[in-house]
Amino acid sequence: MNRLKEYVKKNQKMILILILAFAVVFPLLGFEKSTIRIFCRILMYMTLAGSLNITNGYSGQTSLGHAGFFCVGAYTAAIITTRFEVSFWPIMILAGIFAAVVGLIISVPTIRLKGIYLSIITLGASEVIRILALNWQSLTGGSFGIKGIPRPVFFGFEFDSPLKFYYLFLGIALIFLFVSHRVINSRVGRSWMSIRENELAAKSLGVECSAAKMMNFAFGAFWAGIIGAVYAVYVQYIDSAVFTLDEGFNIMSMVIIGGQGTLVGPLVGSVVVNGLTEVLRPIGVWRFVMYAALIIVMMWFRPQGLMGASNSILAGGKVKMKATGKAKRKETTP
């Protein structure tokens, strides 16, 4: 196991390129449209779960209402593209920014509050957003949803098949991973992680915790908004029934099963959960029971998830005494 880890570490770049090449070539092997749709789903949830991981995994704020930001992004894109003749791309960014603003607003009351209050408020806010989407007839079409959302066009190239959307989702996932990777490995990411590990100490070192948390929240919400916009033009029809709390829990289960606090974790989680969804289709509703059981099992035996950051507070708060060779206990006699 350790050897494998070392090997991966040594050849990181090569492995990444291999995986990427695989992801690009793989769907061209002539799959059915429905199979490609599954790949699209997986990629979509990779970004979505990844953006939740930014808040849950990196700054340790357990947000449970990620479906709300997803909803905001999807509705923003749907409303604007069906009413005005505009290109999709600026709207996508706008949807992200709008979701980020909503995220900022939600995070305001949580500055003064800790852990659990944040979870409850995000949960509540997600419900409020859904209720608004369901009942604001004139803007969102109420329970009928919004139909006929136009396909995006990129310089005359229309995204009209699942395969094309596959590459769009892949592109967004890659951009997301690239940007997140850079942010995490900078001063900003370090300040997020310091808040997760020990807020008191972070404050004593001059980390502006409230600002950092808000930025973290907005950053996560931004990507959820973007993926929401793409989702809206992908399925061409949205209604509020998609964005329930269960959807939020679904996203969360990917993050938890895959692993919190690493960029790889949510990717694995998305593959595992969506893969299981397909494999377990024959057992019908029982598969949701399976996920729930899987989450509990995960919490019992590997709270940081399959690929999670094992050296973090997410892993259960106990320092595992490993002989690292360098740290030697001083044997002293008084």
Binding site: F288, M299, W300, G316
Partner: peptide, 28 residues
């Protein structure tokens, strides 16, 4: 019971999982 000494968010997520479990079982 298992999580008295662990950070709070772990048992929190565990209860979320358990609630999903009960809800889906109840639906069945």
């Amino acid at each position: 019971e298992h999580f008295f000494d662990a950070p709070r968010h772990i048992s929190l997520i565990c209860t979320v999982g358990f609630s999903m479990l009960i809800k889906n079982l109840a639906q069945i």
